[in-house]
Design a protein around this nucleic acid. Structure first.
Lengths: 180, 180
DNA sequence: ACAGCCATGTAATCGGTTACATGATTGG
DNA sequence: CCAATCATGTAACCGATTACATGGCTGT
């Protein structure tokens, strides 16, 4: 497959086609909609154009299956698309992929002292509580799935991420309550 | 301050002006450039327009100090800007802020089995290695700073995040080497 | 038959970045 | 004085999202 390097989103869509294909664009959308992170939109405007581009680049191809009156494109990955996917995954690990990633709570934490002192601990406590709520839900979702397939193992990353955040928040809590 | 809600970037810039102000746009850029995450660009095109918008919205104001022949705008946060900043931080925690966040390595992990079996463990090992490299550097940077100011405490979040990632990767390593 | 959902697509917009342009300052 | 760097800005672009448009299918 010749052409430019794909974006993260494009590669991710390509991966979903590899995982679920042959499948329709709608199935890809559902996959994004059921993602644990809100990072990418699962809206039509996000997914359909990406699949079109992937097809133009030769990374996927489609055949129209009939569906009642209308018809639906079933996408599947091509050999060169698989090659592209493999190069994207690595090894080697992509430049910058190992760096710490954005976390809105961490971003806010830099400015915690902009809050009146009385609200600072409350903020940290609420952050812990909110994170734990998400974490509990993640865990209960995961427990209702086979534990050792790749999908579950990958999803587990979110659990570890949030556990890390909670440990960090607790440490902050200690530090600022001691300080005062 | 009336008007639309600010974006994450805008609020973050506002926070930096609160933290470092009165300061120039260039100082804000440096602050972004020294960030642990590559999430936002520190380029001129990213920062200058944001400050201009913040000023139009009344969240910051500027006065031109002289600098040699030319002049530089010194930005500082306004009372209503501080109000805006506080509302952004919370409490309450913003909707969705507690959710798991995007991680490029986790994204790739969903498609690990697209790699030939021989490369799977190698991929995980390299991910661990790359993450540990970043982690070591973060820790050494942090150790050269006062340990208990808010900036250091917030930065510590990146360390916990990467520790979480490594624990998760080790678990994956175990699972897939057992499976084979 | 009609309401509501499933499914596919497109156009306008938006937030942010890249690349470019400009001038002033500092160091050798 | 010249090169390198500091500092401020702008214009074009780009990836992705929102909002809209369309039509088929399904259940009552």
């Amino acid at each position: 497959m010749k052409g430019r390097t794909l974006t993260e989103l494009e590669n991710c869509v390509l991966g979903v086609v590899w995982l679920r294909g042959p499948c329709t664009a709608y199935v890809v959308r559902q996959e994004f909609a059921s993602s644990e992170t809100p990072h990418w939109s699962s809206s039509a405007g996000s997914i359909y154009p990406v699949l079109e581009r992937l097809q133009n680049l030769g990374a996927v191809r489609s055949q129209s299956g009939s569906w009642g009156q209308g018809s639906r494109k079933q996408y599947q990955i091509t050999p060169s698309g698989l090659e592209t996917l493999r190069l994207w995954i690595g090894p080697p690990i992509a430049e910058g992929a190992a760096a710490p990633t954005f976390d809105p709570i961490r971003t806010r934490m830099f400015f915690l002292e902009a809050l009146p002192p009385s609200k600072r601990i409350r903020y940290v406590d609420e952050a812990i509580k909110a994170t734990r709520a998400v974490l509990d839900e993640l865990r209960s979702n995961l427990s209702r799935r086979p534990a050792d397939d790749m999908d579950a193992l990958a999803s587990l990353g979110t659990v570890f991420q949030l556990e890390g955040r909670i440990a960090w928040l607790r440490r902050i809590r200690r530090a600022i309550s001691r300080r005062k």
